[in-house]
Amino acid sequence: MIIFDKTEQGRAEIATRGQALGPRLRTLLLVDGKTAADELLRKVAGLGLAQEHLDQLQQAGLIQRSNGSSKINNGSSVAITTEPTTTKDIAATAALPQSAPETTQLSAEQILPPGQTQFEAIYHFYNDTIKSMIGLRGYGLQLKVERASSVQDFRELRQAYLEAVLKAKGEEIARSLRGRLDQLLYLGERGPSGA
């Protein structure tokens, strides 16, 4: 069983976003030294991530094979990170303070998938990640996504989405997805104030 953990460089990347790492690939920086690689890949399969992406992160020096001395989580119901236990903890963590927004460093062409408008990219992001990360518990949120008619409508769903991901998958995945979502929601802007 292969288990990966972040290197010091990987931890720094999460904090500073210093490398030009794609948002999907950045999601895999949620490795924790406990979860088996195959289990981790099952959790992010909806984002189109596979073993080759773990290999890329390893070659970039952002993750490394764990020595196996830590406890292994291989049950399908085990969360990747410890989840906050109170609504107050969840709300506080979902705000996830953001340092300098990365949207100012990338052009729209670098952020948006080829051939998609900002609206389409956000729509697909919400749909794909709600299904893969939240599952059936995200049905109400999915309906709100379907009713959205503007980027502003999507911005208003941001907090509820992040809280749902946090509750379902933990803080590290919520942080990673928040980064990608904010790139799409605030394309070329300063990002959400206070978040």
Results as ranks from 00 to 15, higher is better:
2 I>L: 07
2 I>A: 06
4 F>M: 07
4 F>N: 00
5 D>L: 14
6 K>H: 06
7 T>M: 00
9 Q>N: 13
9 Q>E: 15
10 G>Y: 01
12 A>N: 13
12 A>H: 11
14 I>N: 06
14 I>H: 03
16 T>M: 13
19 Q>E: 12
21 L>G: 02
21 L>W: 01
21 L>V: 10
24 R>E: 03
25 L>P: 05
27 T>S: 08
33 G>E: 08
33 G>M: 07
33 G>H: 11
34 K>T: 14
34 K>V: 04
34 K>G: 05
35 T>S: 09
36 A>N: 05
36 A>I: 08
36 A>K: 12
37 A>L: 09
37 A>P: 03
37 A>C: 13
38 D>V: 14
39 E>G: 14
41 L>N: 07
42 R>S: 09
45 A>L: 15
46 G>T: 10
47 L>V: 04
48 G>I: 10
48 G>N: 12
49 L>C: 04
54 L>D: 01
55 D>A: 15
56 Q>T: 14
58 Q>W: 04
59 Q>K: 14
64 Q>P: 02
65 R>P: 04
65 R>C: 11
66 S>T: 04
67 N>A: 10
67 N>H: 13
70 S>D: 07
71 K>I: 11
72 I>R: 14
73 N>E: 13
74 N>K: 14
74 N>L: 13
76 S>Q: 08
79 A>L: 13
81 T>F: 07
84 P>N: 15
84 P>R: 14
84 P>A: 12
85 T>Q: 15
86 T>E: 00
87 T>C: 09
87 T>N: 09
88 K>L: 08
90 I>H: 05
92 A>W: 07
94 A>G: 09
94 A>P: 04
95 A>F: 11
96 L>P: 02
102 E>D: 12
103 T>M: 04
104 T>D: 06
106 L>W: 14
106 L>M: 12
106 L>P: 02
106 L>F: 15
107 S>N: 10
107 S>V: 13
107 S>G: 13
108 A>W: 00
109 E>I: 10
109 E>V: 09
110 Q>C: 00
111 I>L: 10
114 P>W: 14
119 F>T: 00
119 F>I: 04
124 H>S: 05
127 N>H: 03
130 I>V: 03
132 S>V: 02
132 S>R: 06
134 I>S: 00
135 G>Q: 06
139 Y>W: 10
140 G>T: 04
140 G>C: 00
145 V>S: 03
148 A>N: 10
148 A>Y: 06
149 S>N: 06
149 S>I: 11
150 S>A: 13
151 V>A: 02
153 D>C: 06
154 F>E: 02
154 F>C: 01
156 E>V: 02
158 R>N: 03
159 Q>M: 15
160 A>C: 08
162 L>E: 01
164 A>W: 04
165 V>F: 04
168 A>P: 02
169 K>F: 01
170 G>Q: 05
173 I>R: 02
173 I>M: 04
185 L>V: 09
187 L>R: 08
188 G>C: 11
188 G>F: 08
191 G>K: 03
192 P>R: 13
193 S>T: 10
193 S>H: 11
195 A>Q: 05
